Simulated scan of single mutants.
Amino acid sequence: MGEKVLIKGNEAIGEAALRAGCQCFFGYPITPQTEVAAYMAKKMPKMGRVFLQAESEVAAINMVYGAGGAGIRVMTSSSSPGISLKSEGISYIAGAEVPCVIINIVRGGPGLGSIQPAQSDYNQATRGLGHGDFFVPVLAPASIQEMVDFIGEAFDMADRYRTPVMVMGDGMLGQMMEPVEFADVEERELPVKEWAANGLGDRKKHNVINSLFLKADELENHNIHLFKKFDAIKANEVRYELYNCDDADLILVAYGTTARICKNAIRLAEAEGLKIGLVRPITLWPFPFEAFEKTVNSTKHGFLSVEMSMGQMVEDVKLAVLGRKPVGFYGRAGGMIPTPDAILEKIKTMVGGN
């Protein structure tokens, strides 16, 4: 085990990306993730790498498109409204099968909303990250250590599947400080980027990076190809944590910072004689449906989705449970953070006197 360093979440993201071989960063400042860009601005020029603060989020994501299309490891970061501005470019990148990493440190919304932490980009990340038929893998860390670990995995996943990958945390994870270990990056076998538009080389014709298909049958075939890739991601990359789920009175469902708060609520419930479990999705897409197959018969009173939103994950939980057990919801919105005591009170209403 290496020495641990006390570091802020946003700065840890930057350091992890540099250690994962990120060569280019393009972004635009927005609270609460601006320190990611500030860290990269300080470090990258000294390492001979490229940092550029673009004139807008729209410009930044198109620069990502260009660098990624040349086969270079590239990252951008933003927060909720900024991700919305990037959505057109993300769709182009997904359509052109260009690998990159996108960081979203979520703030309250809709609109400009607030600068406080939230989880109200769940639907956007898992269903509406851009126009057209596509999905993007979304990793949801619950600690700064996981944030660090997931950055390297996100770059590798992006290269393995030729896809953008999002790492999504909330403003609290971006701004808080925790001790983190930066382990040596594991060398993984990844495909050679023979598709990259990086010069003629030994090829007889230039590679072209493109998401435009003017013939309907060609675009349909491309969509079918993309969805075969998405099926492979579903088969190989689903991640989740099961905590205290055996023979539970109720199982909470939460991700990110909220999952940590839920573990405190579980300890409070235990002191009152209640056995409460937790399903923590780590991949928000693909959603870990198998976690519910493993636990649906282990809970007496069903599931309770706990979120920093108005219930955006509830639909996926209900799809996973398929009516076999009740599904409840407790959430706070707009930057408000659930407390363990309030979660415990909601648990008691679902469990009742049994």
Rank of each mutant, 00 (worst) to 15 (best):
E270L: 15
L268F: 04
T283V: 10
S298E: 13
L268K: 03
L214S: 15
K229F: 05
D231L: 14
F303L: 07
L200R: 12
K229P: 04
A265F: 00
R280H: 15
L242Q: 07
K300W: 02
K215E: 14
R260M: 13
L226N: 11
D202W: 08
N221C: 10
K193N: 15
G201K: 09
K193P: 15
E237L: 10
K193S: 13
L214A: 08
G277P: 03
K300Y: 08
L214I: 10
Y240S: 08
R239N: 09
N210G: 07
P288Y: 07
L200N: 07
E272P: 06
K215A: 12
H222S: 12
R260P: 02
D202V: 13
R239M: 14
G199Q: 06
L274P: 00
T258I: 15
F213I: 13
K263Q: 10
A271F: 10
N297H: 12
A196K: 06
T295G: 05
F289K: 05
A232D: 06
R203D: 04
A259E: 00
I261R: 00
R280N: 08
V238T: 14
L250V: 14
A232L: 13
D217E: 11
L242M: 10
L268S: 02
E241V: 11
L304Y: 00
H301N: 09
W285P: 03
A235L: 13
T299R: 06
L212T: 13
R239F: 07
E220H: 10
R239L: 14
E241K: 15
F292G: 00
E270M: 06
K204S: 11
N264T: 10
K263W: 05
R267T: 10
V296I: 11
K263F: 06
V279L: 04
V253P: 04
I266N: 02
N297G: 11
R239V: 04
V253I: 09
I224Y: 06
R280G: 07
R203W: 12
K204L: 10
L278F: 01
T299W: 02
K229M: 10
P281A: 09
G256T: 01
H206R: 12
N264M: 13
Y240E: 04
K263D: 07
D247G: 11
N198E: 11
A269W: 05
V253W: 00
V208D: 05
A196M: 13
L214R: 09
S298K: 11
